[in-house]
Design a binder for these strands. Sequence first.
RNA 1: GGCCCCAUCGUUUAACGGUUAGGACACGGCCCUUUCAAGGCCGCGAUACGGGUUCGAUUCCCGUUGGGGUCACCA
Length: 554
Amino acid sequence: MSVVRTRFAPSPTGYLHIGGVRTALFCYLFAKKHAEGRFVLRIDDTDQQRNVQEALAPILSGLKWLGINWDEGPEVGGPFAPYYQSERADKYQAAVDKLLAGGFAYRDYSRPEELQAEREEAQAAKRTFVYSRRFMAETEEDCRRFEAEGRQGVVRLKIPREGSVVVHDLIRGDVEFDWAQEQDHVIQRADGSCLYHLANVVDDYDLQITHVIRAEEHLSNTPRQIFIAQSLGYPLPQYAHLPFVAEPGSKTKLSKRKLDKYLKNRDFAKLVEQGKKIADRVGLATTADGFNPVIVDFYRQVGYLPEAIDNYIALLGWALDDKSEYFSLKELLDLFTLEGVTKASASFDPAKLFAFQEKHMSELPAAEKYARVLRYLIAAKHVEAPEYADANFEALPELAPAETVVRLPWTDAISPEAVKTTIEKTVAAAGDRIKVSGDVLDFDEFFADDANFPIDEKAWNKRVVDDADAVGRLADFLAELEAIPEAEFVASTLDAALHAFLEKRELKPAQLIHALRVASTGKGVGVGMFDALEILGKDRATKRIRRALELARQ
RNA sequence: GGCCCCAUCGUUUAACGGUUAGGACACGGCCCUUUCAAGGCCGCGAUACGGGUUCGAUUCCCGUUGGGGUCACCA
């Protein structure tokens, strides 16, 4: 048994979308689960302009981010280089010559309008269109004659006019197509450039691809590829056509262009809204092409975990059994099989993806959470890191090195160590509330200037202004807080102190805590009250409450 | 329109002739609770339809309906 080789062959379009990732992931998983299996990345740029590298960058970075690493292809090279179709023209030419010589293709001199006329005629007569081959050149003389008429020649496949072909598909079983339904497709243009189907077949052969795993849309053009391969004497690869990734709540293929439509889906809108909130704070343009939940870059920017995306994407058209759902990439590598792939298209469900993100995030070790979150705090300027003084969000590392020095922009009185502790405690206290890394920005109250942090007006009015006794209680409790030694200013002590205070006065927690929260954090909601006080520390916490009391008494 | 593919809760899936048709997400309720999350418990909810085959069909066959893909000198 030969070594399994799969390939993912994107065109450089400037973005990597969810559907593409799913195909790439399955190709990768299938190859890598086999001993010595190789996953090849080939760039299908037969029809491209200059800026291939630029348009390719987001695709390569997206795959890398997701951990879908290729064994051969751009940047890493490999034994079958080049991996760009634009650099393989000579191979295609040789194949065209061979096809022509074998009588499997012919030179055609029809003009587009002539072909169109035939097409319309067939349509009017309700027949399947089949080219008459009226301008097929069978001899050199024919060629010269047509050329003398000012015609330009292309090369077409000479598809059989009868009989049928069976595609053996690993997912769909045997699918039969009549040759009569196929067209004499053009494989080479007048200018000598070759078209996709030819290039694709030649490359799959040259790169020794054993399993062609691709989206279902390619199933119906597999016959012509089989024709090319067989005419060239190539052994056929195994085919596996994956179901589509469809739109939320629909069976239509997911498309980047229809974002407006998807936005009407509540869950989709939620994702975008959360993403925008984060992007705005870190200075990311939300009008950019990549800022769209259909595009992988969106998730990277907002702070999703690549493992969560991989996990969800893997389940889009694949299942292991009736209960397992949470997988790491590594586990997927062991468990993935083509047999587990479903036949029906699966629609992309943003809410479910988010649930996977929550789950993976909740299992992330504290140190890594810290490293991921730091990027957002720096970009939003809640903390400063001298070594990244002028860096914008994109220039900041996704995982900040542990030794990164941080300070608060508004004071030097708090040491870098203390700032680091503040972040660590904030992340710990926020816990599950930080669902994507960028969510850390919801807890900016711990980094704000004690003398001048923003206060949510609604919460302030409700908890302080409208509560006649709030100020008095706050003042009394402040005195208690001031009596606690700084070293004991920790959540457990504060909890005990507050409850003792309440008990003495026969008050319920709510009668003090809400006002205390607004006074010390400026917000109506947040982490546990005692955690919040501990994070701030005695000095900052009491300073803030004093400020609040002053404001309330004005 | 021709050809091809597909069809289980709202979504994603399990059940490869015998189950009270299972799970997850979402949704609803309750509990916990200082807010917001999280968590726990409970609930709602599906075999598209019609014929066969069979002792027995989600499962096999045929048809209908519905959805999707594809029919380029795009990939």
